[in-house]
Design a binder for these strands. Structure first.
Length: 430
RNA sequence: UCCUCGGUAGCUCAAUUGGCAGAGCGGGUGGCUGUUAACCACUAGGUUGGGGGUUCAAGUCCCUCCCGAGGAGCCA
């Protein structure tokens, strides 16, 4: 008999099936035993009756514990009493691996304990659902760009220089030299878009920020598209289209997962074009009026972002931040060197900034002076300056934080649950 | 780095004013032919994060160190 995955069990109704998996839960009523078996694609109830299986199989069933691995063979029946609507009447049960004192119990656990057991925790229902949503968000992102003719051009992870200062970089030894783990692939996407027009990179990035909040990881995945001849408005349009597509795909493909997570779907269904777009100065006026204690000219703190987005049911785009609180490579307004052509996307419901983007500086002289202004080593950026020497061109791009996006879609407040093995200031294991 | 909160059984937590260290879950044993985080009975399980101090007496008060969580700053 060949293995049937639980996700396909309906097609076997009335017939025989073989399930290979693990015990998710079990209950016994004397001579009758109810096994909840999961195989990664779903969970199915397997009913075992003492008089219908061999003595050995019954004895094996009696020694089962949470997460014992086993192979079940039996008849698939439709039964409303079973969770999921189908159950298997077991004819044979084969133990594969014992599970002694499985640490994650059926009741509550604390965060630290669960994170220590992340390798096992991901088997449980909610975590399983979040990571499946992550998979679908990643697929939506790739489909979105691939369908628009983008080339996936990955950036290096070892880098010799910092794009935005060295204080938040992880340093590592590199054959007697220093190297840093990449905190952004953006500088490498700029030559990429000159070669291919439309490119994106999508991979892990590293920030040694000593942040201890539910929105921060030291290792997180970032999507960074970069498009030649695209201006700031195009950049905002692209981010808007992308987020709409991600949400649409999640609603289409992750219905059961979002249900498991008890996500309020109405909050996702209203994520449609157009997103509100407000100028930085307009945002300042709103905050001053609200009296949050915000000082115009500063960057927004988390409470400011929340105060701004609370009026909207979809992501809020704030554009044209003061140049001095943004990165050196951002282009400024032609008639106003104090104002950068930048944009941030703030997710609703307090999930924070999920996209940060800008039009890039394409003038050689201005870029040179900015590198000087920011006290950055010019020789590390020589190759980057070449792009302005050999056929400079306007271009824009943004970075989207995958885990924050997944958290928002899932309605889960911790980014650490949106990645299989989170890396945080106080956590390097498992 | 700073602020706040916390660390008691395998897990989640309780312990009154400083006065016998407890419960639920999980584990073990037994029972139960339709369970839905099953249920019922019995049972084992403790260096109260480490060190020092005050006291007749410390889980509880003081000092110190370690670890964790939330937040700030910074960011996606």
């Amino acid at each position: 008999m060949t293995q049937t995955y639980i996700s396909d069990i309906a097609s076997k109704a009335g017939g025989e099936a073989e399930i290979k998996g693990w015990i998710a839960n079990f209950r016994s009523s004397g001579k009758l035993m109810f096994l909840q078996v999961r195989d990664g694609t779903g969970v199915i109830q397997c009913v075992t009756s003492k008089k219908e299986v061999s003595e050995k199989a019954w004895e094996d069933a009696r020694t089962l514990a949470l997460e014992s691995s086993l192979i079940i063979r039996g008849t698939v029946n439709k039964d409303d009493r079973a969770p999921g609507g189908y159950e298997i009447w077991v004819s044979d049960l084969e133990m594969v691996g014992a599970s002694v004192d499985y640490p994650i119990a059926k009741k509550e656990h604390g965060d630290a304990f669960l994170l220590d057991h992340r390798h096992l925790w991901m088997r449980s229902k909610k975590q399983h659902a979040i990571l499946r949503v992550r998979h679908h968000v990643i697929k939506a992102i790739r489909d979105f760009f691939d369908d628009k003719g983008f080339i996936n051009l990955d950036a290096p992870i070892f880098t010799p220089n910092a794009s935005e200062g060295t204080s938040t970089l992880f340093e590592t030894e590199y054959f007697g030299d220093k190297a840093y783990l990449s905190q952004s692939g953006q500088l490498y996407m700029e030559p990429g878009c000159a070669a291919f027009g439309k490119v994106y990179c999508f991979g892990p990035t590293f920030r040694a920020e000593k942040s201890k909040t539910r929105k921060h990881l030291t290792e997180f995945w970032m999507l960074e598209p970069e498009v030649a001849y695209m201006d700031l408005d195009g950049c905002m349009d692209l981010g808007e289209d992308l987020l709409c597509f991600i949400v649409e795909q999640a609603l289409k493909r992750c219905q059961p997962e979002l249900e498991t997570l008890e996500r309020d779907l109405s909050r996702l269904e209203c994520v449609k074009k157009p997103f509100p777009r407000i100028h930085y100065k307009e945002a300042c006026d709103i905050l001053v009026k609200k009296g949050t204690g915000f000082t115009p000219g500063d960057d927004f703190g988390a409470p400011d972002e929340e105060a701004l987005v609370e009026a909207y049911d979809r992501p809020l785009i704030i554009h044209r931040f003061p140049a001095d609180i943004k990165a050196f490579y951002m282009k400024c307004e032609d008639d106003d060197p104090e104002t950068s052509l930048s944009c941030d996307f703030i997710a609703p419901e307090g999930f924070g900034e999920i996209i940060g983007g800008s039009q890039r500086e394409d003038d050689l002289e201005i870029l040179e002076s900015k590198i000087k202004q920011h006290d950055l080593p010019r020789d590390a950026f020589e190759w980057y300056l070449d792009l302005r020497k050999y056929g400079t061109f306007p271009h824009s791009g943004f970075g989207l934080g995958l885990e924050r996006t997944v958290s928002w879609i899932c309605g889960n407040r911790h980014v650490r649950e949106a990645i299989p093995f989170p890396r945080m200031m106080h956590r390097l294991k498992p």
